[in-house]
Structures are given as C-alpha cells and as structure tokens.
C-alpha cells in the first residue's frame, strides 16, 4: 500500500469516526421526535405589521413553553405575514414524546387553541387550517447509516493496520 493511499485511509478513518459520533447523537436525540407543520389563514384587513410582530412573538413564546403539548420542544419555526387581506401563519414544531398513541388531532387541537387565545388580539376569523404531523422514522432507518459507517471503520482498520501474513514457500 502506498503512503498516499495509507494517508487517505487514515484520514477517512477519522472523518468516518467523527461522522459516526455525530450520527449516533443525532439518532439518539431524535428517535422519539415528531415533526408537525401547520398552515393557518386568518381573515384580516386592518392588522398592522407591528401587531403581526407582537402576535408572532407571543405565539412563539407559547409554543416554546411547550406546556400545552406536555412534550419537549426541540425545534420551532413560526412565520407570520400578511398577504392582501389575509394573515398567513406557518408554524413548525419538532418535539420529543414518549406517547406512542399520539395523533395529529391532538396537536391540531392544542395548536388551534393557542391560536384562538390570540384571536381577540388579531380580531380575525379563521379561514383555513392545514396541520400535518409525521410519524417517527422507523428504528432501522436511523440505525442503518450508523451501522454502515461502523462497518467501514472496521474495513479501514483491517486495510490500514492489519497486514496479511506472508506465505513462505
């Protein structure tokens, strides 16, 4: 094995090991996670941009509390904008739950409840809502990349550091 190939293998060994650790922590933290996204449209002609910013801030703090979901919020995005006479809210939440009986309706109801709490402030009518949640990826979907990388770490170790015995005639 030339030194160039040897160096590249050692480099890849470190890179793969680094990536494996990253994927391990990623898989461990997200193995019980659920992504939910809601698109809600309110009818309102009078709301100002300042009101929208205030609305966004208070809604974000409610979701960030995570009280209404009884789950740990891992990620959240909240976008609020006014297009013509409609207020559009796009809300995304990723949370960790151990409740395997979780269904979309639960999240839908809790989120709508939190939106409705601010209805007076917005003073508007709910026109449309579309909420979808994604189920937890199956365990083998998480574990496969990690196993594949570990397999290749083993392969690299064998190729780099274990020399085959020479056969004497």
């Amino acid at each position: 094995m030339s030194s160039s190939t040897y160096n590249s293998k050692v480099f890849f060994l470190f890179f793969t090991a680094f990536l494996s650790i990253g994927i391990f922590f990623y898989s461990a933290s997200l193995s019980h996670s659920i992504d939910c996204r809601s698109d809600v449209i309110y009818e309102d002609a009078d709301i100002t941009r300042t009101d929208l910013a205030a609305f966004r801030y208070s809604l974000m703090s409610i979701i960030a509390d995570g009280q209404f979901l009884d789950s740990k919020i891992q990620k959240q995005t909240l976008l609020v904008d006014k297009l013509k006479d409609k207020v559009i809210i796009i809300s995304q939440v990723r949370f960790s739950t151990n409740d395997f009986s979780f269904n979309n309706e639960l999240f839908e109801n809790t989120l709508i409840k939190s939106f409705s709490a601010h209805k007076d402030m917005v003073g508007s009518r709910l026109l449309r809502k579309n909420i979808q949640c994604h189920s937890i990826p199956r365990w083998f979907e998480f574990i496969t990349p990690l196993m594949l990388l570990l397999l290749f770490i083993l392969y690299l170790i064998v190729r780099c550091f274990i020399k085959p015995k020479s056969v004497s005639s």
């Binding site: 990536l19 959240q76 998480f142």
Partner: peptide
C-alpha cells in the same frame, strides 16, 4: 430553525444516507 422553515426528519435522513453511501 427560527426564521426559516426547517427540513423534516425524513429529509435530514436522506442527506445523511447520501453522505454515508458516498463515503462507502
């Protein structure tokens, strides 16, 4: 997160699969 829509779990997994198989 925050000001941008974040990619779902499946998208993240797809990118990870691509990187891992690329190395292999």
């Amino acid at each position: 997160q925050g000001d941008l829509v974040f990619a779902g779990l499946k998208t993240e997994l797809i990118i990870i699969y691509f990187i891992v198989t690329f190395i292999c």
